[in-house]
């Protein structure tokens, strides 16, 4: 039984067709990345899953229930960290739980410690660096009770070095806490390093162009990005994407 499935999703804005007959699914505890050209409709896809938009056609199912237009069914981490500036880090990371009515301060404190943010529990977001903010935002989505986490280019605003650090950190947390993750990125290497599966979208109107199952064993070390196997995969996906431009 898949955690999330999309079946023949169509969406247009006016005359502009953005998604056309898009179908895919994510299993429990699976890490799936979506790559695609800019403007192909990746964020739109998240808005549909998040219930901000209604699909023109098709079904979005969580476990087995229909969630078309239903908000709060997924946990979400946007590109900007979107922490509330008047809340301390501790209050911020518990926001997702709070909205659904159950707070677990002990769990939140443990998670903050694991993220290397000990000592910042009662600091305000403006006192943190960009990477720390993204970490806090990620903990917030991990602590939210929904089983699927959707991340929309969470690291694209970070510099290369912080980004690498964040990817390793993300993997270590995820390997320990196994949740389903849907991850949007522009970065092929990032997708390869993190995912079980990569879904390549075509340019507008977006359809699933190719799906790759990534065979690298877990837990993954950062050194795999230098192996020849990794490079071959990178070429393969790169060619798939280049074919569209």
């Amino acid at each position: 039984m898949a955690s999330l499935s999309l079946i023949n999703i169509c969406k247009s804005f006016g005359d502009k067709k953005v998604l056309k007959d898009l179908s895919f699914s994510i299993d429990h505890a699976e890490f799936v990345s979506i790559v695609g050209p800019s403007g192909s409709g990746k964020s739109t896809l998240f808005h549909l899953i998040g219930g901000l938009l209604q699909p023109d056609n098709g079904e979005i199912r969580m476990e087995s229930s229909l969630i078309n237009g239903k908000r709060g069914a997924i946990s979400y981490m946007p590109q900007s960290s979107s922490l509330l500036p008047w809340r301390t880090i501790l209050e911020n990371v518990m926001l997702g739980e709070e909205l659904l009515g159950k707070k677990d301060e002990q769990g939140a404190l443990e998670m903050i410690a694991k993220a290397g943010l000990s000592g910042y529990e009662h600091a305000y977001p403006d006192q943190l660096s960009g990477g720390m903010k993204q970490r806090a935002a990620f903990i917030r989505s991990m602590l939210s009770p929904q089983s699927l986490i959707c991340l929309d280019e969470p690291f694209s605003a970070l510099d290369e070095f912080t980004r690498l650090e964040m990817q390793q950190w993300l993997l270590s947390i995820w390997e320990e806490h196994k949740r389903s993750i849907l991850f949007v990125t522009h970065n092929i290497e990032e997708a390869l390093y993190l995912s079980d599966r990569i879904i390549v979208l075509s340019s507008r109107p977006a359809q699933v162009k190719a799906v790759f199952t990534i065979p690298f064993a877990r837990p993954r070390r950062e050194s795999i990005v230098l192996t020849e196997d990794f490079l071959r995969w990178k070429k393969k996906i790169y060619n798939e994407l280049r074919g569209m431009i």
């Binding site: 901000l52 908000r71 946990s75 979400y76 946007p78 900007s80 509330l84 008047w86 709070e98 909205l99």
Partner: peptide, 27 residues
């Protein structure tokens, strides 16, 4: 707008959005 977007995606009700976002933001 980003914060509003997050709150909506997180499934906040209209009342929660007002109490937890718009009101403190307007202070």
């Amino acid at each position: 707008a980003d914060l509003m977007h997050y709150m909506k995606m997180a499934g906040a009700t209209k009342g929660q959005i007002f109490r937890k976002l718009e009101w403190p933001f307007a202070l």
